[in-house]
Design a protein around this nucleic acid. Structure first.
Lengths: 116, 116
DNA sequence: ATGACTGTGTAGGACATACTACACATTGCT
DNA sequence: AGCAATGTGTAGTATGTCCTACACAGTCAT
């Protein structure tokens, strides 16, 4: 599944009950030209900028980090966190790479519970 | 400290004993025009691409993740890891954001020791 | 059949990224 | 004086990013 198909599907699902989620309406709400959004949805145009993806996430009730990932991007706030301590974060991310979700979640919980 | 100044300093340190680390020699070794490297070092040109930064890291015996971070970039392999499970990694990275180095290192060690 | 919608096609443009090619001036050596 | 090596200035290019502006064709209701 790619970015364009995903948001087209999502928008079409939302547009089933009423004309609130047409290409034109959504585009207007997030400040884009309708034809541009149309092209994005058909993968004729590449995914838009991070700022636009964020507005799109709000408009379509999607998780911004997930949408950004579909566009092959990493949220700028995460990039900032990583670039401030690159070796440290590179190490832990690579370490967690092959761990199953539930194990990573356990780490998150342990960290959050302040056992450190 | 910015990218240009940093690599200029590093190269100059390495060039102290012998003419092995002139702008021209280093540029030749990593396949760049000398004038381009010169401009990068003086911050007239923006930091180069990830691939070039990696070659530069090898040539100057620097940590690639660190150099990439100085250029405001995140290694593409890390980006890939994150975009495969964006919500999970977004959560843990934000959770670790304000933790001191030693605490993050402890997490890394625990993970590596396979207590999970 | 007119008007109000719908999505989409065409044709750009402004700016950034990531470079190359080559000439030039300065310095040090012989 | 002449050559080699140094760093740098100028000019230009290809490609990508991120969009706008506007026109057009089809559908649907009145």
């Amino acid at each position: 599944m790619n970015f364009g198909n995903y948001i087209r599907d999502k928008r079409e699902k939302l547009s089933e009950n009423g004309p609130t989620y047409t290409v034109r309406k959504v585009a207007a709400r997030i400040g884009l030209e309708p034809s541009y959004l149309s092209k994005i949805e058909r993968n004729i145009a590449a995914p838009p900028s991070e700022a636009t993806i964020r507005r799109l996430a709000v408009a379509l009730q999607e998780d911004p980090d997930f949408l950004l990932a579909m566009a092959g991007k990493v949220s700028s706030d995460l990039r900032e966190i990583i670039t401030k301590r690159p070796r440290l974060f590179a190490e832990i991310i690579r370490e967690l790479k092959d761990m199953p979700d539930h194990a990573v979640l356990r780490v998150i919980r342990e960290v959050r519970d302040g056992k450190w």
